[in-house]
Amino acid sequence: MKVIIQDGEFDPWKAVQEYQSENIADGKHGASVTFIGSMRDFNDGVDDLSKMYLDHYPGMTEKHIERVCEDALNKWDVLDAFVVHRVGNIAPNDAIVLVAVWSEHRAMAFDACRFIINDLKHRAPFWKREANEDGERWVEGNTVDEVADQHSDMAKRAS
């Protein structure tokens, strides 16, 4: 398991490929699920975003995401998890976050990947500050994962 917080661009596809070739044993995984979050040029009624700054809490951010990955590895039978998250200045279309999970079968990799990205979006200490020609503003809330909420509602109704 590895968590990287970095200031500067990265190629998420290359990062997954490199991590897999160095850390995942050949022939042992049947599924790899990746989530890549990128910067849009629109958000919350503003359609000309030109850049963004991502602030974070050095130390706590790494610690929090590492713990979430460990929780995912304990909760599901997954082989490994890898997270890269940008901080600093970001441009539209740049990759912001990569979450990659490997497992024997797809269901566990999907569930673990969703668990990690949802926790990361709602609990990991990062803050976005968006800018356009009119100025800058702190983003006030993250989008809700509707599918996760539906699953949660269905689970509650079933119990």
Partner: peptide
Amino acid sequence: VAFFPPVTGG
């Protein structure tokens, strides 16, 4: 001790 607003990463 750290004080901060709701997080918006990812």
